[in-house]
């Protein structure tokens, strides 16, 4: 189960809307071992694509160094789908490499850049297997 603060949910949705129709992506880091997302880190989608996202390689190095320095881990790894449902694609599964992270998907397919309904779901992806999990918003 993912337990997450409302303001962090809002921040991910706002990022997804701002970057629509391209995919938005980022991390919410938290203290190692806590499973609690606390530090919101929007990332640039180096692919700038409506169907693909990738953290820039130098941004990725800096992100992991900063988390290491703070004894943090990527508790949430999020990205948006802009034309399809908030469910991991085959590409998402093939790249997923943080077995302890919550992979959060936001879909902006219904409302694009404006306020309104959105899909927000969370998954574990371990050894190529997707398991959806409940979300508790605080």
């Amino acid at each position: 189960m993912l337990t997450i603060r409302q303001d962090l949910v809002d921040a991910m949705v706002a990022h997804a809307r701002a970057d629509h129709p391209d995919e938005a992506c980022g991390v919410i880091a938290g203290p190692d071992g806590s499973d609690e997302p606390t530090r919101f880190i929007p990332m640039v989608n180096a692919a700038r694509s409506p169907t693909f996202y990738e953290f820039d390689s130098m941004d990725l190095l800096k992100l992991y160094r900063d988390m290491d320095d703070n004894d943090e881990v990527p508790v949430v790894i999020y990205h948006s789908h802009t034309a399809t449902e908030a469910y991991p694609s085959r590409t998402d599964v093939s790249y997923a490499s943080e077995p302890e992270a919550h992979y959060v998907l936001v879909s902006t397919r219904e409302t694009g850049t404006v306020d309104g309904p959105y899909e927000f779901r969370s998954y574990r992806i371990v050894d190529g297997v997707i398991t959806e999990e409940e979300i508790t918003v605080l």
């Binding site: 992506c25 990738e54 990725l60 694609s89 085959r90 943080e98």
Partner: peptide, 10 residues
Amino acid sequence: VTVLPAVAGG
């Protein structure tokens, strides 16, 4: 040397 998996998807 630092090894990091790409964070990417579709």
